[in-house]
């Protein structure tokens, strides 16, 4: 499918003030979620990855959410709910990832509650801290892939409707 068709659908969505507002609201909500989780490092907003990664994560999540909302509203495509759900998870996971570190992280006590022993919980938390930039980058890529899938799905559905006349 030509890239321009996906881009044209994206442009169509973001010509509407309603969807622009949806994206802004989504970005604000996602950033708040991320902030709450990151602040669990003893109350400090201690972000150990470059902030631009965080902004990309929030922005791609918000765009994914907006495309999903458009798909549900314009075409009653309930399949878009899946991508909305995943876009909600990525800032939560992102916040967990950046909250791992030497302090009283959220993840370690949570893993202990789940039944991991101290060695295992600390090993997991430390490994996440070590690769946190890579993990956040992976979450951004997931959001971008979701956007690509969503737009393709909308294009195919749109063509199907047009062919029926």
């Amino acid at each position: 499918m030509p890239k321009s068709q996906r881009l044209s659908i994206l442009a169509k969505i973001f010509k509407s003030p309603a969807y622009i507002a949806t994206a802004i609201a989504g970005a604000a909500a996602y950033y708040l979620l991320f902030y709450l989780f990151a602040k669990f490092n003893a109350g400090l907003f201690l972000v150990t990855v470059p902030m631009y990664l965080i902004y990309f994560l929030v922005a791609t999540g918000a765009i994914t959410l907006t495309i999903g909302v458009y798909g549900v509203a314009a075409y009653r495509r309930s399949s878009q709910i899946a991508t909305c759900s995943v876009s909600t998870l990525t800032p939560i996971v992102g916040g967990l990832v950046v909250s791992c570190g030497c302090g009283s992280a959220l993840l370690t006590p949570f893993l202990l509650t789940l039944g991991f022993n101290a060695l295992q919980a600390v090993a997991i938390s430390t490994a996440i801290a070590r690769y946190n930039s890579l993990l956040v980058t992976a979450l951004i890529i997931i959001n971008l892939l979701l956007m690509y899938y969503q737009l393709g799905s909308l294009r195919r559905f749109n063509e199907g409707k047009e062919s029926k006349g």
Partner: peptide, 22 residues
């Protein structure tokens, strides 16, 4: 659409559970 709907509901359920756990 039917299979996508099922995937959607599963994903939605996972997201709700994740938010609840969070």
């Amino acid at each position: 659409e039917s299979s996508n709907r099922k995937i959607s509901y599963v994903a939605l359920a996972i997201a709700v559970v994740a938010l609840a756990v969070a």
